[in-house]
Amino acid sequence: MKALYNYLKEVAFAFVSLANGLLLTLKYFVTPWKSIITENYPDNRNNPSVADEFAGEVILIHDENNEHKCTACTLCQLACPNNSIQIISKQVETEDGKKKKVLDKWVYHLEMCTFCKQCIDACPQDAIKMTNSYELSCFDRSTLTKILNQPGSKLKEKPKVTAKVQE
């Protein structure tokens, strides 16, 4: 008798527990807006909800005069764990006859980049930054090797510090 009672109790508990779980499913069935967190991705391309801080593709910042801040110090190249950055510099002669190293090509291998932000962290001039672009796939891998400095761009001159006149 006791065994039968326990058995029936267990069966009753089973039904109650299953109904309790289904109640939650039913709740979301009738009020689906309470749990929707997905996005209509390809449709909301014009207004994507990507954070500004999202670490995407690396770019070299250019201002309106087509000038960048990269001094070709190669610190980002050394900081990169995957060799995805290649800085090619060239020697030019300035007006006063001195030889100076300037940036020739800032080669970025997007196919090797893991978006770890070490290059941004290493740059002493804040010349590069990460955009929040995320649709980076393409059909030809050669298009992933990019030259980031725009043609004709040059180093931004630092404002010259005028020597203090001793009084």
Partner: peptide, 9 residues
């Protein structure tokens, strides 16, 4: 807890 912890199965 409602969905799984109390579930008989």
């Amino acid at each position: 807890d409602q969905l799984i912890t109390g579930n008989f199965i």
